[in-house]
Computed example of a mutant assay.
Amino acid sequence: MNLLGLIVEYNPFHNGHLYHLNESKKITNATHTIAVMSGNFMQRGTPALLDKFTRAEMAVKNGVDLVVELPTLYACQSAEIFAHGGISLLNSLNCVNSICFGSEIGDIDILYLISKILIDEPIDFKIKLKDYLDKGLPFPKARASALFYYITENKLYDTSEEDLLNMLNSPNNILGIEYIKSILKLNSKIKPYTINRINSGYNSLNVNDSICSASAIRNALKNNSLNTINYTMPKDTYDIINRVIESGFNLVYNEDFYQILSSIIIRDKDNLTDYFEVNEGIENKIYNSIFKCHNIETLQNEIKSKRYT
């Protein structure tokens, strides 16, 4: 057997996911597929549109052989922790030969090279990174510039600094680098592959093709437009969503939790730093912002600043 691992959310499973699944099987020559999937909450802390069992059913009906849950402890974290949880789980199964993920660059060589440099931290790279930080550059820009210097100085890859910065600012490239870093840290035998993401970006709300983002599909469903987007998903996905809606289940969105969230923030004013990664003063910004906002979106925009992305 040749087992392919995928780290997914399928919120919900759509044509882009089916393309990724089928292409991943092709380039890895996989005979079977294991998907590590977020449970009822997603990487950015958002609730899943449908419960994890329904989303696992979608995955299996569309060609995944086994779905394993990624614990919430890892699912709702930064790219680094999310990736480490997914890779650790696949690695612990002791049967997975490869992993394939989508990326904007679609080039495993440069992603692997960047990951290796970030893991090994060669002395020339570290010196340049410190120099750029001392000059006042934000960390992402300083790291990109140090990487560019190290890569070009050692003639490791032909790229421009602008292209490298764009690469490091692209969400799926970032996640792919973290997957590879985790593979290297674990000394895992899992071989990484990548394919180009096609069509819409992951957070685009435009539904103008048979392959669009999950965000666009969720937005359409929020507006009760399932019948207008049936061409964006496999028939099995459409049938399952239609079945769930007809059963009287309300699809779940961020806004459904706003009143609970605001009550907890006000109640726990003095204990907000007990929550993971709530530190360095953002707890005060969260608390002060809650009185100016009426929904999740305005709260996120109010908290966001140059310091807090």
Score class of each variant (00 low, 15 high):
Phe101Trp: 08
Val244Gln: 07
Lys285Cys: 12
Cys100Met: 10
Ile180His: 06
Arg243Phe: 04
Tyr10Arg: 02
Phe13Tyr: 09
Asp209Asn: 14
Lys185Gln: 14
Tyr202Gln: 08
Ser92Leu: 00
Asp270Ile: 06
Ala75Met: 06
Ile195Pro: 05
Glu121Leu: 12
Ile177Trp: 02
Asn173Met: 12
Val96His: 03
Ile27His: 15
Val252Ala: 08
Ser182Phe: 05
Asn250Leu: 07
Lys285Leu: 13
Asn187Arg: 10
Lys306His: 12
Phe276Val: 11
Lys181Phe: 04
Ser262Leu: 08
Asn62Pro: 03
Tyr112Asn: 14
Leu89Ile: 12
Lys155Ala: 14
Ala75His: 04
Asn40Cys: 01
Arg243Ile: 00
Asp256Phe: 00
Lys222Arg: 09
Leu4Ser: 07
Leu21His: 08
Glu162Ala: 12
Ile229Lys: 00
Ala144Lys: 06
Val68Ile: 14
Gly5Ile: 03
Leu168Ser: 04
Leu6His: 01
Leu205Gln: 05
Leu164His: 05
Leu147Met: 06
Tyr112Cys: 14
Tyr157Thr: 04
Ile114Ser: 09
His17Gln: 11
Ile195Ala: 05
Leu118Trp: 01
Thr273Pro: 07
Ser200Ala: 15
Ser204Arg: 10
Lys141Glu: 12
Leu3Met: 14
Ile217Leu: 06
Leu165Asn: 15
Thr152Arg: 12
Asn227Val: 01
Ser92Asp: 04
Glu104Phe: 02
Thr54Ala: 13
Ala75Tyr: 01
Pro192Leu: 11
Leu70Asp: 01
Asn288Arg: 14
Phe82Tyr: 14
Asn206Arg: 10
Asp270Ser: 13
Gly5Phe: 04
Asp239Thr: 05
Leu89Ser: 08
Gly176Val: 03
Ile119His: 11
Leu226Asp: 02
Thr28Ala: 13
Ala214His: 03
Val36Arg: 07
Ile34Tyr: 08
Cys95Trp: 03
Ile119Pro: 08
Phe125His: 09
Tyr287Pro: 00
Asn11Asp: 12
Ile108Gln: 08
Ile127Val: 15
His20Cys: 09
Ile87Leu: 13
Val60Thr: 15
Asp124His: 05
Ile282Phe: 03
Ser215Thr: 15
Lys130Arg: 12
Leu50Gly: 00
Glu57Phe: 04
Val64Met: 05
Leu89Pro: 01
Ser263Ala: 14
Ser103Ala: 07
